[in-house]
Amino acid sequence: MPSLATMLRALPLEKLAPSAHRYLELLFVLTQRNLKVRYRGSILGVYWSLLNPLLMTAAYTAIFGTTFAAYYDHSLLNYLLAAFTGLVVINFFNVTTTQALPSVVNSGALLNKIRLPFSILPLSLVLSNIFQFVVGPLPLLAVMTLVVSHNPFYALLLVIPSVALVLAATGISFLVSALYVFFRDLPYLYELVAFALFLSSPVFYPAAIVPKQVKTFIDLNPLTPIIEGLRQLILGRADLSWGVLGIALLSGTVVCTIGALFFNARSDQYMDLL
Results as ranks from 00 to 15, higher is better:
Asp73Thr: 10
Phe64Gln: 14
Leu55Cys: 15
Phe64Trp: 15
Ile63Ala: 13
Ser49Leu: 04
Phe68Gly: 06
Asn91Asp: 12
Ala82Arg: 09
Leu80Ala: 14
Phe84Tyr: 08
His74Phe: 02
Asn52Leu: 09
Leu44Ala: 09
Val89Ile: 09
Tyr71Ala: 04
Leu54Lys: 15
Met56Gln: 15
Thr66His: 12
Ala59Gly: 08
Gly65Ile: 05
Gly45Asn: 07
Arg40Asp: 03
Phe93Gln: 13
Leu81Val: 02
Gly45Lys: 12
Phe64Asn: 04
Thr61Leu: 11
Thr96Ala: 11
Gly86Asp: 05
Tyr60Val: 01
Leu80Gly: 06
Leu81Thr: 03
Asn52Tyr: 10
Asn91Arg: 10
Leu80Glu: 09
Thr61Lys: 08
Leu51Met: 13
Thr96His: 09
Val95Tyr: 13
Gly65Tyr: 10
Leu80His: 07
His74Leu: 01
Thr96Cys: 09
Asn94Asp: 12
Ala58Cys: 09
Phe84Ser: 12
Leu55Tyr: 03
Thr66Gln: 09
Phe84Leu: 08
Val46Ser: 12
Phe84Ile: 00
Thr96Lys: 10
Ala83Glu: 05
Asn78Leu: 00
Ala62Gln: 09
Tyr72Phe: 04
Leu51Trp: 13
Ala83Pro: 14
Val46Asn: 10
Ile63Val: 15
Phe64Ser: 13
Asn91Pro: 04
Pro53Ala: 00
Leu80Ile: 03
Phe68Ser: 08
Ile43Lys: 08
Thr96Gln: 06
Leu44Glu: 04
Leu55Met: 15
Asn94Arg: 15
Leu80Trp: 14
Arg40Phe: 01
Ala70Lys: 15
Leu76Phe: 05
Phe93Cys: 08
Leu54Ser: 15
His74Trp: 02
Thr97Asp: 11
Tyr60Arg: 04
